[in-house]
């Protein structure tokens, strides 16, 4: 279920554009805040509160999930078990992925023989298709784990969860929009999923940034081109909550990606097409108006030719 209106912002710590975004949605009442990605620092939202003129109410999703685990040990065990399965699934996927990516990278590095460019391009397309197939396979496997879990446990019907969902719905009744901050994307994703939060948010507009933007997308992609260990291969982690589709956010892209490396950008853009890979850096903004995306000037997307182009252009 896509939300009616979504605004994706660049990281907010040093360049705050949140209040401007909320105002632009004509949301002048209370704002529901999700800071579950900050984990045990969830409640340290004073700066955000001040930035929004005090009109926020923190939904305390992280704390509520902790409460659910304490009150419902059976469900807590099942959640841990699901997490273990997802972890193992991810490890297995990664074993295949590094080889598939290396093959695609090597072909992208190779210079074509003059007059036979088509041969190399066909191999490149095949290698990228192999990565896409692998991503899709992984997503199906992950989806299966979620479906089995949901079918067996129906978390929203468990007392501990239902009680918090009821409280959340009451709080949200007083709010005009929801903002979802960044942090630990997996923690944020799982805790929002536990409460089926998107369903409770209803049609309220959502403003999200960093991990918040990632968790709300249809696919959660983890990425870093220059990690201190390993090769820096972007990984499809999980299904997102699906508040919006059509774009994939890459927060802190300037810091985390080698944006000048055309081959890497080409690979990312072609791998995740038709979704548009957006460099969600400070001061950038993408708006979903329910029908189409609008990119604020300076917001860039990764083009299949390896260049960065204005997010709004085809």
């Amino acid at each position: 279920m896509h939300s009616a209106r979504v605004v994706l912002l660049g990281p907010q710590r040093l360049h705050r554009t949140l209040s401007h975004a909320v105002d632009s949605l004509r949301a002048h009442g209370m704002v529901a805040a999700v800071t579950a990605g900050w984990e045990e620092r969830e409640g340290e939202d004073q700066e955000m509160r001040e930035h929004l003129g005090g009109r926020t109410v923190n939904l305390r999703i992280w704390e509520r999930a902790e409460d659910v685990m304490a009150r419902d040990p059976e469900l807590a065990r099942a959640l841990r078990d699901r997490q273990d399965r997802l972890r193992e699934q991810h490890e297995l996927y990664r074993m295949r992925l590094v080889h598939a990516i290396e093959a695609a990278r090597e072909l992208l590095r190779r210079e074509p023989t003059p007059g036979r460019e088509e041969m190399l391009e066909a191999e490149r397309a095949g290698a990228i298709e192999a990565v896409r197939d692998l991503d899709e396979f992984h997503l199906r496997r992950v989806s299966l784990i979620h479906r089995e879990f949901e079918a067996e446990w129906v978390p929203v019907e468990r007392d501990a969860v239902a009680r918090h969902r009821h409280e959340l719905a009451q709080i949200l009744d007083t709010c005009e929009c929801v903002c979802v901050a960044g942090g630990h994307v997996v923690v944020l994703l799982h805790r929002l999923r536990l409460f089926d939060a998107l369903q409770i948010f209803g049609h309220r507009p959502i403003v999200a940034w960093s991990a918040g933007a990632m968790a709300l997308s249809e696919r959660v992609v983890l990425f870093h081109d220059s990690p201190p260990q390993g090769q820096g291969v972007a990984e499809l982690y999980d299904e997102g909550l699906g508040a919006y589709g059509g774009v994939l956010p890459f927060p802190h892209a300037k810091k985390r990606l080698r944006l000048h490396d055309q081959r890497r950008i080409t690979l990312l853009a072609r791998r995740f097409a038709p979704d548009r890979c957006i460099a969600l850096d400070p001061m950038t903004r993408m708006d979903w108006d329910g029908h189409r995306w609008h990119g604020e000037p300076g917001t860039l997307r990764m083009h299949e030719d390896g260049m960065l182009v204005q997010a709004g252009t085809p």
């Binding site: 997996v186 960093s210 990690p227 927060p251």
Partner: peptide, 18 residues
């Protein structure tokens, strides 16, 4: 130091986007 410390204790680089 970067290589050594991150080998001992890998950080949450892949998971945290603030």
């Amino acid at each position: 130091l970067r290589e050594g410390l991150s080998w001992l204790y890998p950080g949450p680089l892949w998971m945290v986007y603030e």
